[in-house]
Write a protein that binds this DNA or RNA. Sequence first.
DNA 1: AAGTCATACAACCGCCGGAAT
DNA 2: TATTCCGGCGGTTGTATGACT
Length: 196
Amino acid sequence: MAKSVEKTVALRKGAWSPEEDRKLTAYIKRYGIWNWAEMAKPAGLQRSGKSCRLRWVNYLRPGIKHGNFSKEEEQTIIDLHEKIGNRWSAIASELTGRTDNEIKNHWHAHLRKRFKYDLNLLPEVEPCQLSKAETDLNRSFRIDLPAHNVPRPSILESLGSISTDNFPSSSSNPQFEIEEKPNIKGSFGSLDNFKE
DNA sequence: AAGTCATACAACCGCCGGAAT
DNA sequence: TATTCCGGCGGTTGTATGACT
């Protein structure tokens, strides 16, 4: 079903454009989340359901915090990681507005090398034995460079305030029409967050 | 000024579990 | 009960950007 759709349509990959972000956000604002695999097409996106879900969950969803982690947040991550390991989603649930992906990245970029450095736990191994991530970690560790933690300009700035006012309505553009929402199950996502 | 290196982070991939049929 | 589908998770990779030489 959904898989056949994804097979027959050439799907875009790579970085999301502001236009794609607008389309996905506007679609979810209008119709909610009902089936990621099926939503992409009527939303006007040539993306896989997984890609749409990931973009929404990690970036577009209301309430997502971007930017540097506070000392408290870092300490929470360290504490929880010590207790439960790489269960990033569980850790993320304890940090309002942070996603598992962001925490995972932050851990690998900042915290893990600091943690291991403190404990002298990093083994001496040949780089050829390491994955890329491990190689990066080892390299960073050994040269002991301070992270130049300059945040990139957020793509959200280019989006401005998202509005569906200039977005094609379902009545004027059949591309966005949905006769019904088949096989709806589970949560409708974070629609409550749109309520003002 | 140009080339290379190091870093951060967005996004993809593959697997797994739960729900539906 | 078996199969299929979907969403979620964690690991990994690709790439943009800034620092360094």
